[in-house]
Simulated scan of single mutants.
Amino acid sequence: MNAIISASDLATALAGEAPPVLLDVRWQLSVAKAAGEPSFDGRAEYAAGHIPGAVFVDLDRELAGPPGAGGRHPLPDLEVFGAAMRRAGVSAGRPVVVYDGGQGWAAARAWWLLRWTGHPEVSVLDGGLTAWEGPLSVEAPSPEAGDFRPAPGATGLLDADGAAALARTGVLFDARAGERYRGDVEPIDRVGGHIPGAVSAPTTGNVAADGRFRPADELAARFASLGASGGTEVGVYCGSGVSGAHEVLALAVAGIPAALYVGSWSEWSSDPERPVAVGPDPQ
């Protein structure tokens, strides 16, 4: 199963004899979260209309642990995550498709977690709900419980030390906006800037104006121009491990495996002993 799926292909799959499990992960980062307030989680929008059969998944509560020393969106408790996936009908032998409102960040976080914990067939709806032209439903389904049991380690995961090392020996992409990478502004975290040696690669460069991913060859060329080619080990971080998952997804579309530093800048910058670089990318 490909990392992304078009709306037309999803419609065909849902009409088939063995449709995929469908997860709605609408969510939007709120800068107020830095003050302890919750992000917008899309639950009301889900209730107002979702792709038929989709089950709502709460990013803040089911795809992340409580904010703390590990960042704003640390890894979730695997028992909580596994229970949420089984409640949604996720099983190891059945494909899963994840979507959000269109930005792709939240859907990519769910995609990455399922892949990291061993699910073999997970796709993100390219362009999210805005790309869907089929009917919507206001009925919340009650799927048969799935059998998925998270087995972490199927894909790459970085901690702070691993990210720092990769910035020296491979390529570590910073998926945030360029102004946050440079340290011009920092609306959420303790200090602006980036991990020394990291390369600026904003997620906005991975998608076209309609929010869909650029073709695989264009993405491969983009990442090659930033140093990710020839078997180089690649990692990604962002603010709190959400938009960084979107960059890992873009790299997967380009055929480039990459690890995710889940704690990301929210964890890194919380420790005043860790070094901070500012200014433009030296490349």
Rank of each mutant, 00 (worst) to 15 (best):
M1N: 07
N2V: 00
N2H: 12
A11C: 05
A18K: 15
P19K: 02
V21R: 12
D24C: 02
V25H: 04
R26V: 00
R26P: 00
Q28K: 11
K33F: 10
A34R: 15
V55G: 02
F56D: 06
F56S: 14
D58T: 01
E62K: 00
A64N: 06
A69C: 00
G70V: 01
G71L: 09
R72I: 02
L75P: 00
P76A: 10
D77W: 07
D77S: 06
E79F: 04
V80E: 09
A83S: 14
R86H: 01
V90N: 07
V90A: 06
S91L: 13
A92I: 12
R94G: 02
V96A: 10
D100T: 05
G101C: 00
G102V: 03
Q103Y: 01
W105Y: 07
W105H: 15
A108G: 11
R109A: 08
L113N: 12
R115E: 13
P120I: 02
E121S: 15
V122M: 08
S123K: 04
T130S: 14
E133R: 15
G134Y: 04
E139A: 15
S142W: 10
P143H: 08
G153C: 09
G156E: 11
A160I: 04
R168C: 08
R176G: 03
A177D: 12
R182A: 15
R182Q: 15
R182N: 07
V191N: 01
I195M: 09
I195Q: 02
G197C: 10
A208K: 08
A208C: 10
F213V: 09
P215M: 12
D217G: 01
D217K: 07
S225I: 12
S225K: 11
A228C: 12
S229N: 03
C238T: 04
G239C: 08
A245Q: 07
A252I: 09
G255F: 08
A258L: 04
A258C: 13
L260M: 10
Y261L: 05
Y261G: 01
V262C: 11
G263H: 02
W265S: 05
S269M: 10
A277W: 10
P280R: 06
D281A: 07
